[in-house]
Write a protein that binds this DNA or RNA. Sequence first.
DNA 1: GCCGGTCTTGACGGGTTCCATACGCCATCA
DNA 2: TGATGGCGTATGGAACCCGTCAAGACCGGC
Lengths: 222, 222
Amino acid sequence: MTRILVVDDEPQILRALRINLAARHYEVAVAADGGAALRQAADWQPDLIMLDLGLPDIDGVDVIHGVRGWSSIPIIVLSGRASNQDKIDALDAGADDYVTKPFGIDELLARVRAVTRRAAVQDEELAQVQVGEHVVDLSRKTVSSGVRLTPTEWHILEILLRNPGKLVSQRQLLAEVWGAKFVKETHYLRQYMVQLRRKLEADPAHPAHLITEPGMGYRFMP
Amino acid sequence: MTRILVVDDEPQILRALRINLAARHYEVAVAADGGAALRQAADWQPDLIMLDLGLPDIDGVDVIHGVRGWSSIPIIVLSGRASNQDKIDALDAGADDYVTKPFGIDELLARVRAVTRRAAVQDEELAQVQVGEHVVDLSRKTVSSGVRLTPTEWHILEILLRNPGKLVSQRQLLAEVWGAKFVKETHYLRQYMVQLRRKLEADPAHPAHLITEPGMGYRFMP
DNA sequence: GCCGGTCTTGACGGGTTCCATACGCCATCA
DNA sequence: TGATGGCGTATGGAACCCGTCAAGACCGGC
């Protein structure tokens, strides 16, 4: 189910959007200011953000920057300001679409579908990945032959599998799984890479798919 | 260079868009009706399509369907019809954005950047450089034929490859890789240039791509 | 309160990478 | 022709990183 974070400081708009989106079977969370929005975006990991530019604490464009610093979640801007420069600033900051109030709910929903369409295509393609003898299903969180993974193991494996063939730095893995304060704790990774290889590799001592790049990071080889 | 196909039946709009886009260094092709648009899209392989809905031969939504049948090229719809249903139909047919005439050229350009941004991210990942017999992929941190590089080797090679044909001073290399305090330790560089040439050059004693400029620095020749 | 699974933390051996030193070659210039 | 400076190459030890084992801490369900 698609998770949408709605950010607006007007309670009645928040309420109207929540009801309309929930009726279309979206999962909805709300935030009333920029600080809450950034926190929610990080904690709740929405699939899309609807962002009003006129927030009480932080300027909307800065919220976009704040999110784009670590994520490429689609962002649709809702705004009362119809001026061209506002649109340009928001879009160039990293917004995916810009809708001017007042707007029809049906148009908004169509834009939501348009923006999420691409991301959905990519996710579906990545749903199942072959790792040696095993098939990993990322959306259903299952592995063939009854292999079971712990939450932390899933988290690490997902990051690696979403970047096939690409080097993923230890720093990035530690920051995404444990948080920014743990980027030096490389032995956490060593620990879990052993576990993953034991569960997925045919010969855990000589891994063929979960590869170490000494001094740099790890890599998933399809 | 980004290639944009502009589809509109009004010659003056076609002309205005062509001039404005060309001024921003986009490569532009035009089509005046739906048939020509579908042909051009297939033949010319644009990176983005700007599509007017009011075409003389085919309905704009059907043009979108025609393109989406075989491609996921980004499509921005330009339209005089401001009705909600038109927007919804176009977006659900597969358009990425919908702009209502009249529009500001700056807003349109911002939307072009927003729509092409995601595709651009994927293109960046094709940052491959040919070094003699080998192909170096900077984003994935891989070299063809199983050649492996250490972190320091990567660091030096990246700086050189990102400045193709340009002289990079020893001072700059030492400062970037080891820090400002090491700008005199030129023997570090000699050490690692040997290693890089051994791993990448066909004849390491007579390098063809990783060139020394005596007394000044090093240069990567494509 | 007990128990199983999971996550954190510590310690150790082996291998690789990095750094330091030494030496030979070559071009330039006196 | 000899001195000099910059460069390429070889080699050894130190530091670092990784994989592995093991044990304690934490957390949930029963």
